[in-house]
Structure formats: C-alpha cells, structure tokens
C-alpha cells in the first residue's frame, strides 16, 4: 500500500468535489476490494475519499413498483431485506452465495458493481497483465487459466468479473444510477460493465469523476420461478467457476418470459437476450433449456485449463433453468 491522503465526504456534492480532477483518487466505502488491491500494490491511489457517511444507505420503493437499493447498503442488509427476499429471491440468493458473512457485512452494493477481477496475473505484480499494466501482455493466455473467461474475451485479456450479485442484477435488468459533474444519469445494467477489447484496464462505463448512488430493480422480480446456481471448487467462500441466474415466467407449461445470465465466464456478467427470447413461447422443459444453453455457448472458447467451463456452463444453465421452472415462491 502506498501512502495516500484521506478525506471524508459529508455529502454527495462533497464526494464529487473530491473526485473531480484527481486522476489517482478513489472513493472507498466497504473497502473489501480496493484495500485488498492496494495492499497487493495493484491499485495505487494517492487520494481516498471515504463516502461511507453519505445518505445512500436505504432501500426504498420506486414509483415504478420496484426497489431502489442505495449504493451504500451492505450486501448483507440487501440480501436479508424482507422486500428483496420476497420479491427478488434470486438476488438474495446470489448475494448470499458470494464471499463470506463478514465480507458481506462490509461490502456495499456500489462496491460490488465495481469490484475487479480475481485473475491471478492481475493480482501478482511480478507477472504481465494488460489490465494492471496496459501493454505488458496477458499472462493468463498460455498460462494458468482455469478460472478464466470463455465468452467475450479478447487477445488482450481473458479475465472474468467475480461478482455473484451482478449476475442476478443482469438477469433482473437492473439500472445503475450514477451522479457526476454533468449531473445524474441512469445506466442500463447491460451497459455498465465492459468487455475487455483492447482496453481491459477499463472495467466499466462509469466515468472516473462519477459515483454510483443506487441500483434500481424493476418491478418484475421473477419471484415465482427463479434461481441462482453457483458452481465452485468448494462449498462456500470461493469464486464461481460458473454461475447462472435463471428466471422464468411460465403459463400453462409454456415460457412467457425468460432471463438468463452467467457469472464466472466473461469480463462482465454475461446476459444473453437472444437465448432468452428463444425460450419464449416454448415449453418449459429440458429440451427447450438445452437449446437455450447451446445458444448462449455458441461462441464460447476455452484457453486450455478452462475448456471444461464450456461443458460446465451448458450443464449449469440446464440445471438452473430446470430448478427455476420447478421453484415456487420461497
């Protein structure tokens, strides 16, 4: 960790003032990812703006019948909120599948969106990584890549996004509310995270001078038929090899609406709307689900150690959709 200066923002405006014009400034809330990366010398901000005292710590109803999750509400409080639990059980499950109880007590919703990859090479400053040091190369391509991406990767980066919560948010088509010197704006979840392309150092489309204030959940929560399936190397406290957020609306045995998003497979939570649309109107059965899985993985590509993820993702999608179809309101 390098020396930095520290200030505490008392208001959103205060926070924005702190952020503007300081290239090496980072806002800090839960700290679970940023401080970790600073200790590893991967991130070296010279200024930290503590935003934990901002009034962004509430979960509120929206006019559209959804919920607004304040950026500073902890992951634990979000997952255990009765409204989230009953109306968005998939989201609650996804959050509880991530990290540990302690970390969820610290980590915030805003921070969860902004967490960075767990790629070994990104974390180890003794190795090449285009995300950490643009132009240094990608160590994982041709290296140890068991946990890496099978979708949407580039020759510059095959890292994955590590969040569980974000996979459910992608499937729910949440919106991210952000604010900055140019005012407030809303970013559709799909457009928030980026694919690596030739600039893997940039994870999201949040401008450097903007901060996340809330996550809006639409009214439609798929509470009746949804699930979050996480497949990992141990039963708890491990990142996903593959995870699936699956949500269905079913009438008379037929799918009337579908949502499907994957974690652990790409640089961003991977939602496939084409596969979702292909499910609509088809019977809610294994045959339809298998077609959807094939569609999602049509362009999947492995890099050696992670080849298994393609088959695993197919199996996980199938299983999650079956579980979602079978599930009832918790």
């Amino acid at each position: 960790m390098r020396a930095f200066s520290y200030s505490r923002a008392e208001s959103v405006a205060d926070a924005l003032k702190g952020v503007v014009g300081h290239g090496e400034t980072k806002v800090v809330a839960g700290g679970t990812n940023l401080l970790d990366l600073m200790k590893a010398d991967v991130m070296r901000p010279t200024r930290l703006v503590d935003i934990t005292r901002l009034p962004l710590n509430r979960i509120e109803e929206t006019a559209e019948g959804g919920l607004r999750l304040g950026a500073l509400v902890t992951n634990a409080d979000t997952a255990h909120d009765e409204r989230v639990r009953s109306r968005y059980p998939m989201l609650s499950r996804a959050i509880l599948a991530g990290a540990s109880a302690q970390l969820r007590n610290m980590a915030t919703n805003g921070g969860n969106l902004l967490q960075r990859t767990r790629c070994y090479y990104f974390y180890d400053t003794g190795t090449p990584c285009n995300k950490r040091e643009p132009g240094s190369g990608c160590g994982a391509i041709g290296g140890v890549n068991r946990i890496h991406a099978i979708l949407g990767a580039s020759e510059h980066c095959i890292a994955t996004h590590p969040s569980d919560m974000c996979v459910a948010l992608a499937a729910l088509a949440a919106e991210i509310r952000v604010t900055g010197p140019r005012g407030e704006r809303t970013i559709p979840f799909e457009a928030f995270h980026r694919l690596p392309g030739d600039a893997p150092q940039i994870d999201t489309n949040l401008a450097p001078d903007e901060i996340v204030t809330a996550i809006d959940l639409p009214a439609r929560g798929f509470a009746a038929h949804s699930t979050y399936l996480k497949v990992r190397d141990r039963q708890s406290y491990a990142f996903a090899l593959v995870s699936v957020a699956a949500a269905l609306e079913i009438e008379d045995g037929k799918v009337t609406a579908a949502r499907l998003a994957l974690g652990g497979v790409a640089h961003k939570p991977w939602r496939d709307q084409a596969a979702e649309e292909a499910l609509v109107g088809r019977p809610a059965d294994a045959g339809s689900f298998a077609v959807a899985a094939e569609a999602v993985l049509r362009d999947a590509r492995g890099f050696g150690h992670n080849d298994f993820k393609i088959d695993l993702a197919r199996r996980a999608i199938l299983r999650a959709l079956q579980d979602a179809a079978a599930s009832e309101t918790p």
């Binding site: 767990r118 070994y120 090479y121 974390y123 180890d124 003794g126 190795t127 160590g139 041709g142 290296g143 140890v144 068991r146 946990i147 190397d233 141990r234 039963q235 708890s236 406290y237 491990a238 990142f239």
Partner: peptide, 29 residues
Amino acid sequence: LEEETFMDHGLGRYMNHDLAEYHVPVNAD
C-alpha cells in the same frame, strides 16, 4: 478434492498463492 498449487511453467511461478485461490476446506465442506 481441493488443494493444488498451480505453477505457470512459462514463468516458473506459483500463481494461486493466496487463500482465495489455494483452496483449503471451509466449514461448509
């Protein structure tokens, strides 16, 4: 079921050198 230190033979370096990626059993296991 879990323990393995991955070596990048190109670099000659262990890559999963932390407790997040070198998996030892947790309570739920």
